[in-house]
Computed example of a mutant assay.
Amino acid sequence: MSPQGPRGGRGQGRPQRPATGRGKGPQPGGKAGGKAGGKTGGKTGGAQGGKPRTGGAVNRRGAAQRMTDRIAPAPQPPRRGPAPVRRPGADVHDPEGVRLQKVLAQAGAGSRRACEEMIAAGRVTVDGEVVTELGVRIDPARQVVHVDGMRFSIDDELVYIMVNKPKGVVSTMYDEQDRLNLADMVGPREQRLFHVGRLDLDTEGLILLTNDGALTHRLQHPSFGVQKTYLAEVRGPVKRDLGRNLRAGVELEDGPVSVDSFKLVDSKPGYALVEVVLHEGRKHVVRRLLEAEGYPVLKLVRVQMGPIVLGDLKPGKNRRLTRGEVQQLMSVAGL
């Protein structure tokens, strides 16, 4: 007997038939061909009978890359430079000065302990810089202090005086005709004082004297809107539309003027007392306004400037403003 060839086992495969043979060999469209095409063709990209996997993915990635190559990149925002360096605030400490809490206490801001708490809470500024250290010393004569945004007058050389100017007194600190003037109302002073606005010879009432130039400018200039209140006696009765006309504006020889408010205070047969509030500072403006409406002024008194009220101060007398009144004035003047 001729020896037989080894039978196929687990470790030994059967001889492969040629793929192009006839008979019962695998056909291109047959079952075996389909498997071969699915396994081999998918990896090599050549067979029939299965969807190509690896080759197709490569094609898609290549197409995606080609598409992105044609897309213009999105515009990028310009690069910013380095962040600005925050510099520390100005040094307001004056080694030769006075402790800030002591200055505030002397200015009437509160007790020494209360002023220390204000500083620690960050409520106090010196020359615009927030101060929270209790050891800071300042020069009251040259530095500006605010508490909660309100300026405190800490310079003892600054003077603020309220005068009740009588009729017949000139609103100057000196008069060449040797008439009674404001300097006669307050007596000799070391400081050079300025009058805040003027009152004509026949007008009475409140006028301020100070050596604070910044405050004087702001109280006088109409752009800062500091109101002045006047009481005027006129012949009555007063027509009902007088207030409306004054608020709407009256054309004077130097331009239109309007009042901020108008009120009828008292009225009797042949007599009326009216209140006029305005922030204009033109010469004789109240008298000219009322006269233009047919009511010549018989008597005129200024009773208030901003928050400062004349009160019961007698004509010819004067008094220094309290620290609280000075702070209120600075507040309305924007200092």
Rank of each mutant, 00 (worst) to 15 (best):
E157F: 09
G89C: 02
V131T: 08
P6M: 01
L278C: 06
G97A: 01
G255P: 08
R7S: 10
G135I: 07
A36V: 15
G56Y: 10
R323T: 07
P296R: 12
V144I: 12
G41I: 08
E117Y: 01
S171A: 15
A105E: 03
V285L: 01
G9Y: 05
T322L: 11
T203M: 09
G324Y: 00
V277R: 09
P75F: 04
R86S: 07
P82A: 09
M118V: 01
K102F: 06
L300Q: 05
K102L: 11
Y230C: 08
P84A: 07
A214K: 12
L300M: 10
R247L: 14
Q143K: 05
E325H: 10
P3S: 04
R87T: 05
F224K: 07
I308L: 15
G270V: 00
E157V: 12
T322N: 02
G128K: 02
K299G: 07
D202T: 12
Y174E: 14
G21L: 12
P52C: 03
P77Y: 01
D266E: 14
K263H: 05
N181D: 15
R53I: 07
P166A: 15
Q27N: 01
D148H: 09
G311W: 13
D241F: 05
L158G: 01
K51L: 11
A120V: 15
G255F: 08
Q227L: 09
E117N: 11
P95E: 03
M1E: 09
D266G: 00
V159L: 14
E251Q: 13
T216A: 14
A141L: 11
E157W: 10
R192H: 06
H284T: 01
E253S: 12
I154T: 15
A232I: 02
G334L: 09
G62V: 13
D202Q: 13
V159G: 02
H284I: 01
R112W: 04
P222H: 09
G30N: 10
V301L: 11
L201G: 04
G49F: 11
R151W: 09
H146R: 15
